[in-house]
Design a protein around this nucleic acid. Structure first.
Lengths: 138, 138
DNA sequence: CCGTATCCTATCCGATACTG
DNA sequence: CAGTATCGGATAGGATACGG
C-alpha cells in the first residue's frame, strides 16, 4: 500500500499531460464506467427498479460474483440505490439514482450503436482477416 | 477449441434473452468498445490523424503493448485506418474511419460525463465509506 | 432470495529486449 | 520511429460451497 503501483509511477513521470493523465480522477472514473457489466446493468435499470434475481436473469452470462461486485461499485459511486425490504425471504431492489439516470442516455446510446453497427464491423473483420491470410498464405 | 467455454455454455442455457445474451454478436462488440483504452484513443483521434508516437504521448500511461494492441483491434473492426508512409524513419498515421467517427460523439460524451461528474461521485464514495466505517467502527 | 467466502484459472498488462 | 516477442506478476472473473 505504501509502495506506488507501476501505473502511478509512470503517470508521475509524465506530468505534462492533464486530461489524459493516468492519475487524473476523471480518468479513473472513466476507467470504471468503461466496463461491460456497468453498461449492461445501467441499461437493464432503464425502466425502473429491478430485483437482484431479476437482474441476474436479464443480464445473461453475468456471474453472481460480478453482479454483486458491479452493483456494489455502482452503489458506492452513487449511481445506483439499493433498497432492502425485510420480507420473509428478503427482497432487494436496485434503482438508478438521478446521477445514474444522467449516465443512462450515454450507456443506452453506446449499446444501441453496438447493435446497429455490428454487421459493418463484422464485414470489416472479414476483410481484415482475409487480407492477412489470403495473399501470401503465410 | 472444440469444447465450449463456460460462458458459452451458460449463455446457451438461457436462450430466452436476446439483446442481453452473452453470445449475441452485438454484446461482444459492446464488450470490445467498453474499454478504457478504446474510449481514450477514439477521443485522442477526434481532431484528425495522429502519429503512433503522438498517441503514446497524448494518452499518458498507455504501454507500447496496449497502444499497439488496441489500435490493431480498432483497425480490424474498421474504426481506425492505418497509413504507412515509407520515409526514412517510417511514419505511421492513425485516423478514424467514417464508422469510427460515428462512435466518436458517444465516446466523447462519456469522457465529458466522467470529467463533469467526478466531484459528485467522489462525494458519494466518501458518504458510502463513512457509513461503513463510522457507526460501529467494525 | 440474496448474498459472502474461497479457490483457482485465464487474461490483462507492464517491463524488457530486440528488429526493420 | 514503429513496432514484435517474450516473460512474469497482478487482476478479473467463473465455480462452488456456505450463511442470513
Amino acid at each position: 500500500m505504501a509502495t506506488r503501483t507501476a501505473a502511478e509511477r509512470r503517470a508521475e513521470a509524465r506530468t505534462e499531460f492533464d486530461a489524459y493523465m493516468a492519475s487524473c480522477p476523471a480518468r479513473r472514473l472513466l476507467d470504471g464506467i468503461s466496463d461491460k457489466w456497468v453498461s449492461l446493468l445501467v441499461n437493464a435499470l432503464a425502466d425502473g427498479p429491478r430485483r437482484y434475481s431479476d437482474l441476474s436473469r436479464r443480464v445473461a452470462g453475468v456471474s453472481q460474483k460480478m453482479l454483486t461486485q458491479t452493483l456494489r461499485n455502482l452503489e458506492r459511486d452513487g449511481l445506483v440505490e439499493r433498497t432492502v425490504t425485510p420480507s420473509v425471504p428478503v427482497r432487494v431492489d436496485y434503482a438508478l439514482t438521478p446521477l445514474g439516470a444522467s449516465l443512462l442516455p450515454l450507456m443506452r446510446a453506446v449499446k444501441t450503436w453496438a447493435e446497429e453497427h455490428i454487421p459493418e464491423v463484422d464485414r470489416a473483420r472479414e476483410r481484415y482477416d482475409a487480407a492477412r491470410m489470403g495473399p501470401d498464405r503465410r
